Simulated assay, not measured.
Amino acid sequence: MDTKKIVVACGTGGVTSKNIAMKIEKYLKGKGIDAKTSTCRVSEVAALVSQIHPDVVCSATQLPPLDVPTIKATAILTGVGADKVFEQIYDIVK
């Protein structure tokens, strides 16, 4: 099984993106998918995408245009609508 690459971005590349990343990894592990997340600031996301070529980019804030699928992942923080966001991520990486 190949490891799926996911970038999670937030304004500062700190707690918010790490929190989302941990929850995504836990969810996907429960679905039998090996995923590695990388976190960054939104200002760094384009460079990181061109460097690691992720399967999807998730963010709690507005992203610049990217050549990979993107998902707004704020719901993972609030819990409201998180299941739908997790399913969107799963559909992309499965």
Rank of each mutant, 00 (worst) to 15 (best):
M1Q: 15
T3W: 07
I6S: 15
V7W: 15
A9N: 15
A9E: 15
C10D: 13
C10N: 13
C10Y: 05
G13E: 09
G14E: 10
G14R: 05
V15T: 13
K18T: 10
I20C: 03
A21E: 02
M22T: 06
K23W: 01
E25I: 06
K26S: 11
K26P: 00
Y27K: 07
Y27R: 08
Y27D: 06
G30F: 04
G30V: 06
G30W: 02
K31I: 00
G32W: 02
G32C: 03
G32P: 02
I33H: 04
T39H: 08
T39M: 01
C40R: 07
R41N: 06
R41A: 12
S43I: 11
S43E: 10
E44W: 03
E44K: 01
V45L: 11
A46H: 02
A46W: 01
V49S: 07
S50I: 00
Q51P: 00
I52Q: 09
H53M: 13
P54I: 05
P54V: 08
D55L: 01
D55T: 07
V56H: 12
C58F: 02
S59A: 15
A60E: 06
T61C: 09
Q62H: 12
D67R: 06
D67L: 05
V68H: 13
P69K: 13
P69N: 11
P69M: 13
I71C: 05
K72S: 15
A73F: 12
T74I: 14
A75F: 05
L77R: 06
L77Y: 02
T78Q: 04
T78V: 10
T78W: 07
G79M: 08
G79E: 09
V80Q: 08
G81P: 07
A82E: 09
A82Y: 05
A82I: 11
V85W: 04
Q88K: 12
Q88S: 11
I89P: 01
Y90M: 00
D91S: 08
D91N: 14
K94C: 08
K94I: 03
K94P: 01
K94W: 00
